[in-house]
């Protein structure tokens, strides 16, 4: 990690710590750090950094389980850039507007896994490779385990064309990578919280973290989290599979090592577990991406 990346991480972490998940966080992240425009060139009001930098922000938000508009914004700005928009982008980068993007379409006219719909003031949809501004005609909030994120299914009417040339496969790849970054952050934080717990929880006259079997399990989890971070450099499908499975494993062990405490609602362990299971299914399950991977790659995969 470069010193610029570390500085970005630290400033995001500072704001997240100061605000928690309250309403003022997103505005300050946009205004003071410019997180919404990280992947947008300067001429549209962004900073022209890139997806790597956006993923650092997403990792920090994932640590705190903040589902905020960052992930959806990364997707929406990607679509707007492909479509050649120059009016919405500056407002999105400034944090003045929040757009929700519908792109995953299981059937004509129907979309699922649409993020940030309650907060958004604008709905964009991708269909047939074109980007439209649209009004939702029916909206169903998808049932979810995760109280921190509320994806919606919807259908739309009255489309207004913004531009052509938006590749859905690229959006899927960006979605997988962005979500994987959140998952790595959540897994890392869940592990830290668990390590803190076993250092301070005493049983049999000593911290439970002094027992070898817990030490070894935590060491294994550390290896998995680092491997998951590495997997983000391989491919979007690999990132989605590995990070989903890693967060599930870390969250499950977090619950186990917190014992009865984790079974309470007050403790946050269950939120990590819920995020793990819900995010694993978002944008395609690990099994779906595995099938995609084995179908596309043969003996000489990803150069």
């Amino acid at each position: 990690m470069t010193s610029e990346h570390a500085a970005l991480r630290d400033s995001v972490r500072g704001l997240v710590t100061a605000h928690g998940g309250d309403d003022g966080l997103w505005a300050r992240l946009c205004r003071e750090i410019g997180v919404a425009g990280l992947t947008v060139p300067e001429r549209y009001g962004g900073s022209g950094a890139g997806l790597t930098e956006a993923m650092i922000v997403l990792e920090e938000l994932g640590r705190a389980l903040i589902a905020g508009p960052m992930l959806g914004t990364v997707l929406a700005t990607e679509a707007l850039l492909h479509a050649g928009d120059d009016t919405l982008l500056p407002a999105v980068c400034a944090g003045d507007r929040i757009v929700a993007l519908a792109w995953d379409s299981p059937a004509p006219g129907v979309f699922r896994d649409v993020l940030d719909l309650p907060e958004a003031d604008t709905l964009l949809v991708v269909t047939g490779g074109n980007l439209y501004e649209a009004n939702p005609s029916t909206v169903t909030m998808q049932p979810t385990l995760d109280p921190t994120r509320h994806p919606a299914s919807l259908s739309v009417d009255s489309l207004r064309l913004i531009g052509p040339g938006v590749p859905v496969e690229r959006l899927r790849d960006v979605a997988c990578l962005a979500l994987a970054a959140e998952q790595v952050g959540a897994a890392e934080r869940a592990l830290e919280l668990t390590v803190d717990h076993v250092k301070s929880r005493y049983q049999f006259g000593r911290p439970i973290g002094s027992f070898q079997v817990l030490q070894h399990r935590l060491a294994e989890l550390y290896v998995r989290v680092e491997a998951a971070r590495s997997a983000c450099a391989v491919s979007p499908a690999v990132a989605k599979i590995t990070c989903s499975e890693t967060l599930r494993a870390v969250a499950a062990d977090m619950v186990q090592m917190h014992g009865g405490l984790a079974i309470t609602w007050e403790h946050h362990a269950h939120l990590y577990l819920r995020r793990a299971w819900a995010s694993a299914e978002l944008f395609g399950s690990p099994a779906h991406h595995l099938a995609r991977l084995t179908a596309t790659h043969g003996s000489a995969p990803v150069a």
Binding site: P207, S210, F211, Q212, L214, H216, Y222
Partner: peptide, 19 residues
């Protein structure tokens, strides 16, 4: 690998020494 797990547990995770 047992020793590697012990090293990770102590040096990287900062867990206390068992006995």
């Amino acid at each position: 690998n047992e020793i590697q797990r012990d090293i990770l547990a102590k040096r990287v995770l900062g867990l206390p020494h068992p006995t």
